[in-house]
């Protein structure tokens, strides 16, 4: 397996405050990786740094070419879809328009129409509501819409920031199943940041643990899940 995304010595700043202190890790093509860490460890910042939404130094390479200094939109156009915290739904637009926006950088009209249908297959509830304003959807529906919108890009890499946030446990299970399917069937590499460590470790094959802006542990998800410290700190048993 080759490294699709390679991050080296990443340091990010919010104004004067440094949030990442030389963070390094790599993502393999086709993997489903989770980033674990306490509140404020720098998980969200890492995702934002990949899309150049926060001032950073260091090296981020995607397919061997550097992402540093590129604008957010041009990074996205390389096939990196980012579902931000809070989902980033276009609340004033309809569900279908949200999906079309996901594919705004694509040119294949027929493909887009087919993909919208495919999304309705994954998330039938979106089809029921396709003319509805996205802001009127429930939290879970909005999260599905956000994932579907990200998939409309036909991404090679998908970054998800706390997809379980604010959702009922049952809905979270469904969502994670679908993420697993997307990873296997569509061969989309996924990097997911999660508070719900247990669920994330069940789903993922790789895991990295962040503490105060650095990677402190990396490995297979099973192996991490069995680690004494991780169990104590993040799984609570």
């Amino acid at each position: 397996m080759t490294a699709m995304l390679n991050i080296k010595d990443l340091r990010s700043y919010y104004g004067q405050v440094q949030a990442l202190h030389g963070l390094s890790f790599a993502l393999n093509e086709g993997s489903l990786t989770t980033l674990l860490g306490a509140n404020g460890a720098g998980k969200t910042t890492t995702l934002r740094a990949i899309c150049n939404m926060v001032r950073s130094t260091g090296a981020i390479e995607f397919d061997g070419s550097s992402l540093m200094g590129r604008s957010t939109e041009s990074i996205v156009r390389l096939g990196i879809a980012h579902v931000p915290q809070g989902r980033g739904t276009f609340t004033s637009l309809t569900v279908e328009e949200n999906l079309q926006l996901g594919a705004i950088s694509r040119r294949d009209r027929a493909g887009i129409i087919a993909d919208i249908e495919r999304m309705y297959g994954y998330f039938p509830v979106l089809k029921e509501r396709y003319t509805q304003q996205a802001g009127t959807l429930s939290g879970g529906e909005q999260q599905m819409l956000a994932v579907a919108r990200a998939l409309m890009l036909k991404p090679r890499l998908m970054l998800l920031d706390e997809p379980s946030f604010g959702l009922a446990p049952l809905i979270v299970r469904d969502l994670f199943k679908i993420l697993g399917r997307i990873n296997r069937e569509e061969k989309v590499t996924i990097l997911v940041v999660e508070q719900n460590a247990q669920l994330a470790l069940e789903l993922a094959d790789q895991a990295h643990v962040i503490e105060t802006g650095r990677i402190v542990m990396s490995g297979g998800a099973k192996e991490i899940a069995n680690n004494e410290d991780v169990r104590k700190s993040y799984l609570g048993y």
Partner: peptide
């Protein structure tokens, strides 16, 4: 419309 309504999300779908 997307860029006007939610600029950050718009960038995340690749809109300049």
């Amino acid at each position: 419309r997307a860029a006007a309504a939610m600029p950050e999300s718009a960038r995340l779908v690749g809109i300049n």
